[in-house]
């Protein structure tokens, strides 16, 4: 009986020792689906450089990222919106000090099916469409087709940015379809001739048509100089500044290195220029 207890204790000790030695090489990233591709690309790159490093990336929405950081469940929260005051408050209550790192810029292109002759929208027109005042492409010079409105789910930072930048926090129409991720928005728009949607810049390719908003096309250049009206920074939050020399530090500063910028560009987002950080 005694020997068994001892063995059990020893095993537990050994296990916790193993866990302790591995703790420093484990990075858990949780949060936004928009920032997901960047986080995944960074993780892939760093892990191929340091085989002992383990990074897991969850894409469960910006709010979930904030929650995980506050609960101490992840080291990095990726967010496509800044933290809300009540989230910061909750973090402070739990003794967590969230520090924001802007890692890239993103546009919020408004996309339609490539068969749509639409030449451009103003913010007001986009608002009217999503508010339910404009229900047919006819009113925008298009053919007679009912508009199918696609939105990100309410649990995303992308949705909140859209609400803030386009909708002025007015409500979306009742018949807006909600989908769970940026990729799903693109898929729905790509398969639906009368659809309109919005997604992160990195998710927009030739299968859908991004339209100019207020006469400006969403591109890396227009997002960076802020002439495209729907642009936003993407964040990674950590608990305090990461110590230099740690993998966590390497992960967060990767976006400032040429390699990191190349990665950001490769997944379709806009890397920051030197000194361009707000």
């Amino acid at each position: 009986m005694h020997t068994r207890t001892i063995t059990a204790t020893l095993t537990a000790l050994a296990l916790s020792a193993v866990m302790a030695t591995h703790a420093g090489e484990e990075i858990v990233v949780d949060g936004s689906t928009t920032v997901g591709p960047i986080a995944k690309a960074f993780a892939e790159y760093l892990m191929s450089q340091h085989p002992s490093l383990r990074i897991s990336v969850s894409e469960s929405g910006s709010g979930n990222g904030a929650k995980s950081l506050i609960n101490g469940a992840c080291q990095v929260a990726t967010m496509s919106r800044p933290m809300k005051p009540q989230e910061t408050l909750a973090a402070q209550v739990k003794g967590i000090n969230p520090v924001a790192h802007i890692i890239a810029m993103d546009g919020l292109p408004i996309i339609v099916h490539p068969s749509n002759p639409l030449k451009g929208l103003t913010i007001e027109q986009a608002r009217d469409i999503y508010f339910g005042r404009i229900n047919n492409w006819q009113f925008l010079g298009g053919p007679n087709a009912r508009i199918v409105r696609i939105s990100r789910d309410t649990n995303s930072g992308t949705y909140e940015c859209f609400m803030e930048m386009v909708m002025n926090k007015t409500r979306l129409a009742n018949n807006v379809e909600y989908v769970g991720s940026n990729g799903a928005v693109r898929q729905r728009v790509m398969n639906t001739p009368a659809a309109i949607g919005y997604a992160g810049l990195g998710f927009v390719d030739a299968t859908v048509k991004a339209v100019p908003v207020n006469g400006v096309m969403p591109t890396a250049a227009t997002v960076l100089d802020n002439s495209y009206p729907l642009s936003r920074p993407l964040f990674m939050y950590t608990n305090g500044e990461p110590a230099t020399g740690t993998f966590l530090h390497a992960f967060l500063t990767l976006c400032q290195t040429p390699k990191g910028k190349e990665l950001i560009q490769a997944v379709g987002f806009v890397p920051l220029v030197e000194g361009g950080q707000q």
């Binding site: 469960s60 929405g61 910006s62 709010g63 979930n64 904030a66 929650k67 506050i70 609960n71 009540q86 989230e87 408050l89 909750a90 739990k94 789910d153 309410t154 649990n155 995303s156 018949n175 379809e177 909600y178 769970g180």
Partner: peptide, 22 residues
Amino acid sequence: MAPVRTLTATIAGDMGEADQVT
């Protein structure tokens, strides 16, 4: 032929942002 929303899907889709910390 209209899109609809159900209880289960709302729970699954909205839980991510429904920050329980507050």
